[in-house]
Design a binder for these strands. Structure first.
Lengths: 265, 265
DNA sequence: GAGGGTGATG
DNA sequence: CATCACCCTC
């Protein structure tokens, strides 16, 4: 029996309910991680997801950020913060334990540009994430890290790696920070299964016709700990929602795992 | 051969192009008067109307008001102001001469409430209109006055005349002002043809389920000078557009005239 | 409740 | 280009 996990930066959940509900209906993932809810907790459309057969754990915030995990079974644990004592945290992290497997959903800061403080904040976020994984989890456990990671790991993961080398989301310091997190014990399952495939998950609104011309980036990822990654059957970005009338700038990514090959649950 | 004239307060032409073009296609009026364009001249969708086979005369304004007349033949004259010397006028009047018949399209100020200056401005608008008709036209000529008149003439023309008596759009001073314009020589052709029919043209967004519960007002009218009114074959409000997904708060009204009974053109 | 304007962010 | 916030009008 395959276990399906997905991620989707919705760019405003209130403006994206139709495509999200249709996507849930078509794919029936066991868990769907959402980023950029851009709404407060009180405005989160809990009922609509319940009617669609999904539990929802979420952390909203006014206007910006906001993350959720929708799931067909109820999480046994939910975490909403790193809990490392840094104050006034933004709503960029949520982790849920589903049938014994942790799913960590992050909306990594975009970073603006390497010259700005936002870039350091982004790098620091990766550092905090690594420390948090180190302190709370074991790489030997089945665990998924997913979300809008806001880094294209390699040249194949963006439309113009030469021109964009050193820019935000494709900068050596970001690659280093991401690699440090992965070194904890996480595998990019899309790239594991498709070593040579160029497949994007984000196309900038501000670039004219970016989706039609496929001028995109692979910024949304599904990482898994080693044993779980070995049980991964497939991972794909689904460009369909990005082709619609008023889409998010991101599109969903999903992965299927054969949990029986794992002995989990 | 019937001559068909219609009026539609669109509440933002840019947000209402689909229903307007479909309505034009289905009804093929000789003239369609629009109010509340809510766009500047530069943003008026002239090309789309041309493709649909219509000429357009219009007076836009940023954010508010804005009036247009779409017509299958090109107007021989267009007027955009009362020209009575009052400054800084809002885009609430357009008149076009079509095949020898003047069509006067107004978006009469709503008036807010009888206690506010906006109410006096509304009454003054009727006064200016009357003077303008007096100075420029003859009631013996065929002439149509239509648009969002923002007054329910009689008790039958709103859903709760008792509770709303004396409120804006159903106030004695508005009735007086409207009657004074009509006394120039204009007949409400809907009421002429349907003396006892309760039929609304506006349902407030702010009243829950107002359209479904038919809690409406007849605020959009087609007046004609005597000889033309006598040639009127039919006049109806078409509720269909108001029943759609994201409708205007108003719905179109149309009237057909038998011009041969007139000897016009 | 639904248009529109402005200004901010990505 | 497309979110959201806050403002105004009907």
């Amino acid at each position: 029996m395959a276990w399906k996990v997905a991620t989707f930066n919705v760019n405003g959940i209130r403006s994206r309910m139709a495509p999200v509900l249709e996507w849930l209906d078509r794919h029936r993932p066991d868990a769907l991680c959402l980023q950029e809810l851009k709404c407060q907790n009180a405005d989160f459309p809990l009922d609509a997801f319940r009617k669609a057969g999904y539990f929802a754990a979420f952390r909203g915030q006014k206007a910006f950020n906001g993350v959720a995990v929708l799931s067909r079974s109820e999480p046994s644990e939910v975490l909403l913060e790193f809990g490392d004592g840094k104050p006034d945290e933004e709503a960029r992290l949520i982790a849920v334990k589903l049938n014994g497997i942790w799913i960590v959903n992050t909306y990594v800061p975009q970073g603006r540009s390497p010259e700005e403080p936002a870039f350091e904040y982004k790098l620091d976020f990766f550092g905090r994430l690594k420390s948090w994984l180190d302190g709370r989890f074991e790489p030997s456990q089945p665990l998924v890290w997913t979300g809008d990671i806001n880094v294209a790991p390699e040249a194949i993961d963006l439309f113009d790696p030469k021109r964009l080398a050193g820019k935000v989301s494709f900068h050596p310091r970001e690659h280093e920070a991401l690699a440090a997190v992965a070194a904890w014990g996480l595998v990019d399952v899309f790239r594991k299964l498709h070593p040579d495939t160029k497949q994007f998950t984000f196309w900038d609104y501000r670039l004219p016709q970016s989706f039609k011309r496929n001028l995109g980036w692979r910024l949304d990822h599904i990482y898994a700990t080693r044993t779980l990654a070995d049980a991964c059957l497939e991972c794909q970005a689904d460009g369909e929602p990005r082709g619609r009338e008023t889409p998010s700038d991101h599109t969903p990514v999903w992965a299927e795992f054969d949990l029986e090959r794992l002995g989990a649950e």
